[in-house]
Every structure is written in structure tokens, then in C-alpha cells.
Amino acid sequence: MKRQKLGNGPDGDFRARGLAARAMLRGELDGPELEKHVEESLLITTLDRAANWARSNAMFPATFGLACCAIEMMAIVGARVDVARFGSEAFRASPRQADLMIISGRVSIKMAPIVRRIYDQMLEPKWTIAMGACSSSMGVFNNYAIVPADKFMPVDVHVPGCPPRPEALMHGILKLRKKIQDDPDMGWRTRYGGGGTEEVVEPAAADPTAGHSIGVSGGGRMGTSA
């Protein structure tokens, strides 16, 4: 699993960007440096960036509280650590309307297929936060009955803790937000090498004599998603 660098600039280095900003104000940047700086710092109008900005600022979490972490997840809705500041207070009950799934709590083997089903029912683009130790790894309970979420679904951000403080979950959500904003190629398929698993409706009905049935979805949508 290759880690992708955040930001298109110099490795997302905050300090370097600050120096470049100062240089620009003084009028010392020019040429390709100036272009690069403008590209990074201004909200330019490529539709991707605008769309990512909109997506990250209004993520609708799905109500998926399983266990103790769910209580701390509900606490971020509360007034002290207010997730409404970041636009995510509308927890949607229906997975069709949600785009962020916070797996808060231990996933038992009976529940795992259901979690997967609900994740599949969510529409692209969708992200997942594995909240707490039980969903990321096995947590406190390393036994026959639970499954780490990584085994059956892609996870974007893992928030450690048992249960993580609401502030920790907010940090995880903010990290996810930054990830969405900065990295245009956000689909989980690229990160997990799941290219080719998109379901594409072939306009011509499947030719029963042709041999292809497994794996190839073709159609030029390889690689990217979202």
C-alpha cells in the first residue's frame, strides 16, 4: 500500500509555503515559482479542486454506532466538540445519503457482512474512518469473535483510542478533510489497487459465446474513481 503524499507542492511543507507567500508579497517570486505558488495557494477553478473542497466541507456521516466508540461519536455532535462547525452534523441514517462511514466500535463476525453491505450501499465518493482500536486492529479483544475493519473494507483514516476522545475523532475527521482537499485522486481503488472492480453497465448485452466473464470491466474507467 503506497502512501501518497498530501498536496501537490513541496511535500506539503507548511513552512516552505509560508516563505513562498512572504516572497510573493514582497514581489520576489516570479516565473515558474510564482505560478506554482499561485496554483497551490489560491482556490483555482479546476473543477476537481472545487469539488473536493465542497466534498470535504460537507461530509455527511452515516449513523453507524456499534459500541462504546459510538458514545464518543455522539459526543462530537454535542456542543462541546461541535462537528457542526465542519459541516458534518447531519448524520444520515440511510447509507444512500451518507458519504462518510465512521465505524465506531467493535465489528463482530456476525456484523461484518452487514457493515460491508452498508458500505457497498453508499454512493461514491465515500470515505471511512475506523474509529477506535477495535475497528482498526482488534483492540482490547483479540479473540474469535471480532474482525478488524481493514479485512473486509477499505479504510481511510484510523483513529486510535479506546474510546478515542471526541477531540481525537475530530482530529481524524480533520485529517480526512485535508486528505480530501489536497489529493485529487482520492478513490480508494487507487490506494488499494482495486482498479477494475467498478461495475459498469455494458451497453451491448453480454455475448454468451464470448469468453469474458470474470474480472475485466474494461470500458476505460480503470484506475480512477470518485
Binding site: L66, A67, G105, R106, S108, K110, M111, I114, C134, V140, F141, N142, N143, Y144, A145, I146
Partner: peptide, 14 residues
């Protein structure tokens, strides 16, 4: 029920 069964009692024996 059983969708949150974590085997706590079994883990406790260990």
C-alpha cells in the same frame, strides 16, 4: 442479537 458479540467472557479467561 449477537451482532456485537465480542467474546468478552472468553477473553477474560485468558
Amino acid at each position: 442479537i449477537g451482532y456485537l458479540h465480542t467474546g468478552i467472557e472468553k477473553t477474560a479467561e485468558d
